[in-house]
């Protein structure tokens, strides 16, 4: 099959390249763009280490072909921080010891960030449900939950700070 040219907005910048139609989105992100924060942990879309946001919605980028992202917006872990300032979720993971080996962390943080967009004050159950499509082998999840809730509080206090 012939290569296709795709154009994807990645972390706010336009990225165009020629790609084999069978190339998975995760491999395009990692190899063509050199954004290695998106990881591969399984071959069956089970672990979610490859999670990115596609037009703001979490997807497992090993489940999509790169060509399917043509014309759309992708956010990877490298795009979470804005202007050198960490996203509250990134801070939360540091504050609440939400990571150990760090391999699942980008996917977990992106799930957390997407959750907070929809639900700025999630309960423990809300967070557990939101991250239940991804696997972590180190933390036991409890501190990941706390990290996301820490971020929710941080975002809320920043918000009220802005309003005040």
């Amino acid at each position: 099959m012939e290569n296709k040219t795709i154009s994807v907005t990645v972390n706010g910048g336009s990225k165009a390249s020629e790609v084999e139609p069978r190339r998975l989105l995760v491999h395009w992100i990692r190899e063509a763009l050199g954004l290695t924060g998106t990881h591969v942990g399984c071959d069956t879309s089970s672990c979610g280490a490859c999670t990115v946001l596609l037009d703001g919605t979490p997807v497992k980028s090993c489940t999509m072909f790169a060509v399917q992202a043509d014309g759309r917006e992708v956010t990877t872990v490298e795009g979470l921080q804005q202007g050198g300032k960490l996203h509250p979720v990134q801070e939360g993971f540091k504050e609440e010891h939400g990571l150990q080996c760090g391999f699942c962390t980008p996917g977990m943080m992106l799930l957390g960030a997407a959750l907070l967009e929809e639900n700025p004050d999630p309960s423990e159950e809300d967070v557990r449900w939101a991250i239940s499509g991804n696997l972590c082998r180190c933390t036991g999840y409890q501190n990941i939950v706390k990290s996301v809730q820490w971020a929710a509080r941080k975002a809320a206090s920043e918000q009220s700070g802005v309003n005040a």
Binding site: R30, L35, T36, G37, T38, H39, V40, T76, V77, E78, L80, Q81, L86, Q90, E91, F93, K94, E95, H97, L99, G102, F103, T105, P106, M109
Partner: peptide, 19 residues
């Protein structure tokens, strides 16, 4: 003490084998 290694990991800056 908050972990020193976390800074790179939360930025997607870990350096794993496949990276």
């Amino acid at each position: 003490v908050k972990r020193k290694e976390d800074d790179r990991f939360v930025r997607g800056g870990g350096n794993y084998l496949d990276d």
